[in-house]
Design a protein around this nucleic acid. Structure first.
Length: 284
DNA sequence: ATAAACGCCTGACGGC
DNA sequence: TGCCGTCAGGCGTTTA
């Protein structure tokens, strides 16, 4: 599920209960069973299980797309990548096909990390600042659009890959970036150095708007990756190529940008002057 | 400094 | 029905 609103939804369920499960705060970890060793980024299964056993969950929070379980001694950090999910279930419930790692609690429940594509990773951190240092700011915590403008202009990158760069901004993925660029009326290939202060302001507020709506809808559920969210019903461009733009009716286009499928409206998000020449060269 | 290509994986889908 | 290519919410590494 793996963008900020989906990760936030998982975190809230772990912290406060939800998705038919009780909160895990205060629970004591017994041991871990690992069925796909590469899920652990650094430890061996034995070392991991030994290091977590006997600890308690003090808090659960999110940083970018990372889920962080604060234990007594260290931080258990989870990244869902493309297909990961976390479930809290009573021990009498059977495990599922793609469960890669299970953490057993003394309370008669377990936390299951399910991940069909095996891209997800789990770490143990001593100091969570090490993780934070490698990430850009939280998009929902940026107050100054002028500062955001300055950071955009200082780079000379295509807008979409820049917004998805976790060192530039943490939490944006393919869906929410396409949606935000449509709301802001900006072309995904626009060079970040060419943005105006007005456009930067619009972009920041579009980013915050899609993320907030996404969180309110408990994220998006797509195809077979159903996880209970409903934001997919409000997509304006993502996955809608060939369908009319909800604003102007122009048919949504799909192109590839930075190896990712990119959906946009050529009327609401016109190609910048500076890119028109390159476009013509491509067609010749 | 930026950007493309590729690797990591399984499953769904469309075409034949 | 089966086989095959293509695509998918992410990101790290290597290469240009």
């Amino acid at each position: 599920m793996p963008e900020l609103p989906e990760v936030e939804t998982v975190c809230r369920a772990l912290r406060s209960g939800g998705r038919d499960a009780p909160p895990i705060i205060g629970w004591q970890l017994k041991k871990a069973d690992i069925f796909w060793a590469k899920t652990l980024a650094e430890q061996s299964p034995e070392e991991f299980s030994r290091k977590i056993s006997g600890q308690k969950v003090e808090d659960v929070f999110r940083r970018g797309k990372f889920i962080i379980l604060q234990l007594i001694q260290n931080f258990l950090v989870v990244h869902l990548r493309m297909s990961g999910d976390l479930r809290v279930e009573p021990d009498d419930k059977e495990l599922l096909k793609h469960d890669r790692l299970i953490i057993w609690f003394e309370q008669g429940y377990h936390l299951a990390f399910n991940d069909p594509r095996k891209f997800g990773r789990i770490w143990l951190y001593q100091n969570i600042d090490e993780l934070s240092a490698r990430l850009g700011p939280e998009p929902l915590e940026i107050k100054s659009s002028d500062e955001f403008y300055q950071r955009l202009v200082r780079r000379k990158r295509q807008l979409k890959p820049l917004l998805m760069d976790q060192k530039f901004l943490s939490g944006m993925g393919n869906i929410y970036t396409d949606e935000a660029l449509h709301i802001a009326g900006l072309h995904p290939l626009m060079n970040s150095a060419d943005i105006t202060p007005e456009q930067a302001k619009k972009l920041l507020s579009a980013i915050q708007q899609v993320l907030q709506t996404g969180i309110k809808r408990n994220g998006a559920s797509i195809d077979w990756m159903y996880r209970g969210g409903s934001f997919q019903n409000e997509f304006r461009v993502y996955g809608r190529s060939g369908q009319p733009c909800p604003i102007c009716g122009t048919l949504i286009k799909k192109i590839t940008v930075g190896q990712r499928g990119t959906h946009f409206c050529s009327t609401c998000q016109p190609i910048p002057q500076s890119l028109q020449l390159k476009e013509m060269e491509r067609k010749l």
